[in-house]
Simulated scan of single mutants.
Amino acid sequence: MESLPLFPLGTVLLPGVRFPLRVFEPRYVAMVRHLESTTAREFGVVAIRRGHEVGSHIPELYRIGCAAVLKNVTRAEGHLVIEAACSRRFRIESVDEGGAPYLVASVEWLDLQAEDVAVEATNGARRAFESFSRAVGAHVQGLPQDPGRLTASVLDGLGLPLPERQKVLEAGDATARLRAVTRLCHREEGLAEVLHCRAATVTPSSRLSPN
């Protein structure tokens, strides 16, 4: 087991995604300052199953999250803006709520080696999302080439709720996650055709807007 500082969020992040985040709560400011003093600069991002990002109450968390490496910190009045890159997935085995100002988890790593992504899975996800977009009369802008960012972008473009996004994270390795979003594209396309849904533009994004 390895210890990992936790940053609970009201969203799901996937491996391969870079994201900005505004940090203002004292406990997470303390976490960032601790990370800046370490070599690994790694922390865990995990989605909140029930509860809120802010406040004294400890939220109920999903067990599987994604580690992120702190890349840059910008200081502003009253808060920090951090830039981080998601890397490997983990499973939470236990959470220490009192050893530090922030949550620290004992985690088991799920991605133990570099992943070889199946080309057919990448191409299949791209085709499925393009087909979904045509079904809803949408124009697709900016699908990335990288398999990890492609998965996140397609998931963003589908606009699915958090539990569905969490299932993609939990689906397995990068190839399994691509196949998961491919199935979701087919499902949403079928629903769109039944319900006669139409949209103007679908703009996938692999970045999380600052909150």
Rank of each mutant, 00 (worst) to 15 (best):
Ala128Lys: 01
Pro210Ile: 13
Gly10Ser: 14
Gly99Trp: 00
Ala40Arg: 13
Ala85Gln: 11
Gly148Val: 01
Thr151Cys: 15
Arg18Cys: 03
Glu120Tyr: 06
Leu21Ile: 08
Gly55Asn: 05
Ala200Arg: 13
Asp156Val: 01
Val69Tyr: 02
Ala105Leu: 03
Glu42His: 05
Gly124Glu: 07
Glu120Cys: 04
Ile48Thr: 04
Ile58Gln: 09
His139Ala: 11
Gly78Trp: 06
Ser206Gly: 01
Asn211Phe: 05
Lys167Val: 08
Val104Ala: 08
Ile82Asp: 06
Thr122Val: 14
Arg91Lys: 13
Ala68Lys: 08
Arg88Gly: 00
Leu178Ile: 08
Ser131Lys: 10
Leu110Ser: 08
Ala200Thr: 13
Leu4Ile: 13
Pro161Asn: 12
Val32Met: 11
Glu130Ser: 06
Leu191Met: 09
Arg49Ala: 15
Phe129Ser: 01
Asn123Val: 13
Val104Asn: 07
Arg134Gln: 08
Leu195Glu: 15
Ser205Val: 11
Pro26Asp: 15
Arg198Val: 14
Glu77Tyr: 11
Glu77Phe: 07
Val140Ala: 04
Val12Lys: 04
Leu150Met: 02
Val32Gln: 06
Ala67Gln: 12
Ala118Pro: 05
Asn211Gln: 10
Arg88Pro: 00
Ala200Lys: 11
Glu120Gln: 15
Ser37Pro: 01
Arg91His: 10
Arg187Asn: 07
Ala135Phe: 01
Glu93Asn: 12
Val136His: 09
His196Cys: 14
Pro20Cys: 10
Glu108Lys: 09
Ser3Ala: 09
Val119Tyr: 14
Leu14Trp: 01
Pro161Val: 03
Phe132Ala: 00
Ser153Thr: 05
Glu53Arg: 05
Pro59Leu: 07
